[in-house]
């Protein structure tokens, strides 16, 4: 087996006086699907936001695709470019059409020609099944469609890892399925994924490994079958118990 896709060692993060990540160690294989669970304030969103450099960290190391995220210049940029991010609030650019949302970074960052970027973007929009809406603006789309567009936008930069920060939490219940569907398809294609979510069914069906965080630490991790059936830690049991209640 080659080197891990993501390697996090003793990660420390403070917001002012608040110690939000207290020594997180995690190694993610290429193609592995990780679901991160935990009560709110456990640091799970912060964890995946540090993995692509959106949040600076104060201690420990993060390596993505073999590159040190904190390295200056090329290596740091390569680590950041290896990740794609999907946000809870979609964060599509409202002043650009769906197609332009998906071509902005390929043209401006990767240096593709417009025609090439558009062909590639259309293929991705086809894949998330909103190619018909390519010329529309974000506000004209439903939440589920917007989130699928946001996934296509992140994929347009050909990331090796996709990070999802509660991608279905802002959606109406009837739209959750279509987004999970797209994510499931992505998982089947072999994408390395780290997903923060409250969708237990997704965790059961898609995850290779479930990670449970509380108070800035990883408390427990394991394959979904044993994690859900037989959690070892009291805090995990309490969390899962509250979900079932």
């Amino acid at each position: 087996m080659s080197q891990p896709m993501i390697e996090i060692a003793d990660l420390q993060k403070w917001y002012g006086d608040q110690h939000v990540l207290r020594g997180v160690d995690l190694s993610v294989r290429s193609g592995e699907r990780i679901v991160v669970l935990g009560p709110s304030g456990s640091g799970k969103s912060t964890l995946i936001r540090t993995v692509n450099g959106l949040e600076p960290h104060q201690g420990g190391t993060i390596r993505v695709d073999g590159h040190d995220l904190d390295a200056r210049g090329q290596a740091g940029a390569a680590a950041r470019r290896a990740t794609g991010m999907v946000f809870q609030a979609f964060n599509l650019f409202p002043h650009l059409s769906i197609l332009d949302n998906c071509t902005l970074a390929p043209i401006r960052v990767a240096g593709l020609a417009r025609a090439e970027a558009e062909t590639q973007a259309m293929a991705l929009l086809e894949r998330v099944r909103i190619a018909d809406h390519a010329r529309k603006f974000p506000i004209q789309l439903s939440g589920g469609q917007q989130q699928r567009a946001a996934i296509a936008r992140a994929l347009a930069m050909a990331p090796k890892v996709m990070l999802f920060d509660e991608p279905t939490s802002a959606l109406d219940p009837e739209m959750v399925g279509e987004v999970l569907d797209v994510m499931c398809g992505l998982a089947e294609s072999g994408m390395t994924m780290m997903v923060v979510t409250h969708e237990m069914q997704f965790a059961r069906d898609v995850a290779d490994r479930v990670i449970f965080m509380d108070q800035g630490r990883i408390i427990e991790s394991g394959p979904p079958a044993s994690f859900f059936a037989d959690p070892r830690e009291a805090r995990t049991r309490a969390f899962l118990g509250r979900l079932r209640a």
Binding site: L54, R81, M85, F87, A89, N91, A105, A150
Partner: peptide
């Protein structure tokens, strides 16, 4: 919104 800057930075801009 801050999310706009974050999304743009996450895309490598």
């Amino acid at each position: 919104p801050q999310g706009q800057r974050e999304a743009a930075r996450a895309l490598g801009l």
